[in-house]
């Protein structure tokens, strides 16, 4: 039992080291890339633009539900005028970055992992190597930098739509004063809150993109079976690991930021 646990622990540490080295070599090879702007734009389209609809939809419904739930909690303390503040702070500091990251992982992260995994199985990554092209630079680094741009922007979209969703339920449906809703947001949300949300988005962007790319890139050694089933296995693992990492790192970042 102890031996097995120890072995598992060593495996986890080894994989963490591998992901870190993979990330460093991918990030470092960006500036040796040709047609960098073109690759970045394509990656921004894949990670960012294609995730806008799902981010907006989830953001709107999250805001609607949050407005409803918080309204009924706040009425118990006759504090429904605080609804705007409660919705905005919950979304900007916590729900926005976390939900956005999970949505992007579901849409773009899984696609990234599967695409690179298929390219590995079809020997396309080996082909890049024989052409003397840096495979990590070509396949991973533009996506890594695109994630740094897209995650905060999509989080901002989520925040805005979510707060608007809270307004729809609280003000339009349940009769909270509109002026009080927006004024509370204006008074209580500071630039520090917004910055903290963006810090989370940036960290989630780097971590999830790395995990998804890593799982795809090493599908031939990470999957228990080769071929299509192997790609499906590593893609699933990429999404699950990314979601866990989002929640775990969210806790760590929040504790760190609140202590400051």
């Amino acid at each position: 039992m102890i031996t097995r646990l120890g072995r598992k622990g060593i495996d986890v540490v080894t994989e963490l080291g591998e992901v870190t080295l993979f990330g460093l070599s991918s990030a470092g090879s960006l500036f040796s890339q040709r047609r960098l702007f073109e690759k970045l734009i394509r990656s921004i389209y894949e990670i960012g633009v294609r995730c806008v609809p799902i981010t907006l939809i989830v953001g709107l419904f999250t805001g609607l539900v949050l407005g409803l739930q918080l309204y009924y909690v706040l009425t118990k303390f006759s504090s429904e005028s605080l609804l705007g503040q409660a919705v905005a702070l919950s979304i900007i500091m916590e729900i926005g970055p976390v939900f956005t990251a999970i949505m992007i992982v579901g849409q773009a992260g899984s696609a990234l992992s599967a695409e690179i995994g298929i390219q590995r199985n079809a020997e396309q990554i080996d082909a890049l190597k024989t052409m003397n092209i840096n495979a990590k630079g070509f396949l991973v680094s533009p996506r890594l930098y695109a994630a740094l741009i897209c995650f905060p922007i999509l989080t901002a979209f989520f925040d805005i739509v979510g707060i608007f969703g809270g307004h729809l339920t609280g003000v339009e449906l349940l009769g909270v004063d509109g002026g009080a809703y927006w004024n509370r947001i204006y008074e209580s949300v500071s630039l520090t809150n917004i910055r903290d949300g963006f810090i989370k988005a940036l960290v989630f962007g780097i971590l999830t993109t790395l995990i998804c790319a890593f799982q795809g890139y090493f599908t031939h050694v990470k999957a228990s079976v080769p071929g299509a089933r192997g790609v499906s296995e590593t893609t699933t693992r990429a999404v699950v690991l990314s979601s866990i990492v989002i929640l775990a790192s969210d806790y760590l970042i929040t504790s760190f930021l609140l202590e400051k």
Binding site: R34, Q124, D126, T130, I133, F138
Partner: peptide, 28 residues
């Protein structure tokens, strides 16, 4: 300088024939 032709060709399926052939020149 040496090139390699793979068993299954290893062509990039999302690139056209022109883009596949031009890839080494564009990148290196």
């Amino acid at each position: 300088p040496c090139s390699y032709m793979f068993q299954q060709n290893a062509l990039f399926d999302s690139l056209t024939v022109f883009e596949n052939v031009a890839l080494p020149l564009r990148e290196k």
